[in-house]
Computed example of a mutant assay.
Amino acid sequence: MKQKLLFLFFLASLNFYGQTVEILGKVTGVSDVENIHVINKTGQAYTVTDAHGEFKLRVRLHDTIVFTSIRYKLQEIVVSNETVLNKAVLVKLNEQVNQLDTVIVGKILTGDLLSDIKNTKGDRPLNFFDVGIPGYTGRIATINERQLSEASGFNPGLGSSGYGLGASVGFTPIINAISGRTKMLKRRVKIEQKDGLMHSIKSRLGKDFFASNPLDEDKQMDFFYFCSDDANFIKYCKNQNDFKVLVFLRMKYKQYLENIKP
């Protein structure tokens, strides 16, 4: 009878230790706790926190969960018996503080950037508003974007001498359209935008993504080019939150692994 009870206890223990449960978690910090990356390193699962710092994640006993963010220090916890039983966890994150060393330049500075700016005397540089000149304050256009604007911007007044539509310069956009140059420049701008978006995603999410979706380092750049070649890359990744972008990357990750199978 004792042996039977011990055997049943052993089976129950195995079931408890191997059980996968969905836990409700919450992170706290000194500032914004939205979009904190939550990675189950052991179980290869990933999610992000909502505006209240809450998240849901599937875990097992002794899994290691990593919390990463630009605002907070990296933190790891190991899933305990209490976490599995309660299906809940509360994690307090420590702020990432980047302080300057104390330096002396003319006057004694504290190293506190905001304090030193307030205590430093000096005139700000003049800008075009100070002298009454209108100026552009938006994003600087790339070379390809400027060339496209010049190639497609039809202006009948260009090159005119007061005789109708003017010289041949005014017809440049029409010639560019007929010759295919405008189409070619549009294609260049689109490629440039996709390339910029791809590098931005790689820089922002690459480290965390590959922590839960392992891939050889020499294949990681090729993977992101593979993602950017997808017809829906711009649709699913431009102006989207990190969670939606990571869902897209995860889908492409599975496809990429199939493609590189020998």
Rank of each mutant, 00 (worst) to 15 (best):
K56V: 09
K92I: 01
V30G: 07
I175C: 07
G106N: 11
V245E: 05
G157V: 10
L257R: 07
V91H: 02
Q193C: 08
V79Y: 01
Y236E: 11
T137Y: 06
D63V: 00
F224T: 08
D130W: 03
K194W: 01
N155C: 04
D130P: 06
A45D: 11
F223I: 03
Q147T: 09
A177I: 14
V91K: 06
S149T: 05
I234S: 02
G157Q: 14
S212Y: 05
F223Q: 01
Q240G: 12
N15W: 08
L109T: 10
L126E: 08
T120R: 09
Q96F: 09
F7G: 11
L14V: 14
G111A: 01
D116G: 07
I140M: 10
G157H: 10
C237A: 02
N15T: 13
I191K: 13
Q3F: 10
A141S: 07
A51C: 08
N98E: 13
E22V: 15
L148E: 14
T172L: 14
N35E: 11
A88I: 12
F7C: 12
N94P: 00
F248K: 02
F67I: 10
L93C: 03
F129W: 02
D216H: 03
I39V: 13
I140G: 06
F128K: 02
L197V: 00
L126W: 01
G162N: 10
I143T: 11
